[in-house]
Design a protein around this nucleic acid. Structure first.
Length: 431
DNA sequence: TCTGGGGTCCTAGGACCC
DNA sequence: TCTGGGGTCCTAGGACCC
């Protein structure tokens, strides 16, 4: 048995937590760079604001209907997410954090009757302790638990919890469009529909070999999970990342090699932090730059270049140096660059790295320096210490966030202030 | 007409997720 | 005027091995 917990309109709910006056009002949260809508309140959905709608498309609606708009505040959401995960760990023997607002819960060996009660209890705990509304779906497989969660969410007046036993779910599955199944995206949905397969139930009735042939083994697994046969394992310990990186779309195009070099150094530093956190070192760094592909009227150019390290490294200094080298290979003067990225791949465990005899770098010195740098930055904030090649103001300077909320739980200077007479009563106990 | 049988590794491209 | 930033897995095909 497996449960899936998913916070309702997660980013919007995070913003409302610190602005309760927004409950009942249309609210949206935008992607990085204030590009398009990535989270909507039910009221915003009712106004017809699409997921992924570009900001300029909804501008009139926002003004007319008084939609409250936020830039995304990822540090805040990440912090609240971690708190939710800690709460549910008290109730489920094992959890798998699937995304910032979702977690699978291992309910192996439990009975349906107990699960109904447990799920309601977990939902109540998250609402009480984090102030965030969530829904929980429970079934025998992950794909069915996902579907159960979706059914719980659609039932606005319901209890927020839905059990979906595979033996009796045919009618429910027949009401679910095939494209709403977890793992069936736009392409597969269109393909299935063109073959007359329109609902999740119809998908369960197709011969397995046909599914295997057209949707690969991935599709077959989804089909079996819909039939109640678990195929997707529970992963309570997160796997080490295989690739990671950092990239941004800039608010204003960068034109000089120096500007791009600084941005890439920032990305390299951020990516380095990430792999040091998981104790990995990178064998390959790929830097890429590109112009604005939405501007059909402008000349387009984009290229990437990969640098291999003879000794895998996670030193920000060596990564930044490599990104600079890569940029020299790909930079072309005269183009406005809208996006750039640094990707790290060929990640290996740091302890398995054997410095080669002849590469002339004191890797142990770099390791100690990074340790010190991470400690300082961990305490005083990212970029408190940085390499000289990075942007003075960090990547934030290069992106646009016009409606950013405060770091209520993530920055001391921005902690929520409450003005109330009750405080004196509450605190008087301590005096 | 007809040309073995068994592997591995790598990459690009395509699908998917939040 | 204006559209993010992360990730994963699978397959086919080519190059190579004995």
């Amino acid at each position: 048995m497996v449960g899936l917990l998913d916070i309702n309109s997660f980013y919007v709910s995070c913003e409302r937590l610190f602005a309760p006056g927004l409950n009942g009002r249309p609210v949206v949260v935008l992607s990085n760079n204030d590009g398009f809508v990535i989270s909507r309140s039910n009221e915003a959905k009712a106004l017809g604001i699409r997921m992924g709608a570009a900001v300029f498309e909804i501008r009139d609606l926002v003004r007319k209907e008084g939609v409250k708009v936020f830039s995304s505040n990822y540090p805040l959401y990440g912090d609240l997410s971690a708190r939710v995960m800690n709460t549910i760990r008290r109730y489920a023997p094992a959890t798998e954090v699937y995304s910032i607002d979702e977690a699978f819960m291992d309910f192996s060996g439990m009975q349906w009757f107990d699960l109904q009660k447990l799920a309601l209890k977990i939902r109540k705990a998250v609402l009480r302790e984090q102030g965030l509304p969530c829904c929980i779906g429970v079934s025998e497989t992950k794909v069915l638990a996902k579907l159960a969660n979706r059914l719980a969410k659609k039932d606005l007046q319901g209890p927020g919890v839905r059990l979906l036993p595979s033996a009796t779910c045919a009618l429910d599955l027949d009401r679910v469009p095939v494209g709403d199944i977890w793992g069936i995206g736009g392409r597969y949905a269109a393909f299935l529909e063109s073959h007359g397969i329109k609902t999740a139930y119809e998908f369960t009735q197709v011969p397995g070999p046909w599914v295997r042939k057209h949707l690969t083994v991935v599709g077959l697994r989804i089909q079996m999970e819909l039939q109640g046969i678990p195929c997707i394992p529970f992963e309570s310990v997160p796997e080490q990342k295989q690739t990671t990186g950092s990239s941004r779309t800039f608010k204003i195009c960068l034109t000089t090699q120096t500007e791009l070099s600084e941005a890439l150094a920032d990305f390299a530093a951020r990516a380095g932090e990430k792999i040091r956190k998981q104790n990995s070192a990178a064998s390959i760094l790929t830097a890429s730059i590109e112009t604005d592909h939405f501007r059909k009227d402008q000349p387009q150019y984009g290229r990437s270049f990969s640098v291999s390290f003879t000794t895998p490294t996670n030193s920000t200094i060596l990564l930044a140096k490599a990104s600079r080298y890569a940029l020299e290979r790909i930079f072309r003067d005269g183009y406005p660059y809208k996006r750039a990225s640094v990707m790290l791949s060929g990640l290996v465990p740091q302890e398995s790295v054997l410095p080669t005899l002849f590469d002339g770098t004191d890797h142990d010195k770099h390791r100690r320096l990074m340790l010190a740098m991470d400690a300082v930055n961990g305490r005083f904030g990212r970029n408190a210490v940085r390499t000289a090649g990075q942007t003075a103001g960090g990547v934030a300077k290069l992106t646009h966030q016009g409606a950013l909320s405060a770091g209520f739980t993530t920055r001391w200077g921005e902690v929520l202030q409450v003005k109330t007479h009750c405080c004196s009563v509450i605190f008087s106990r301590h005096y």
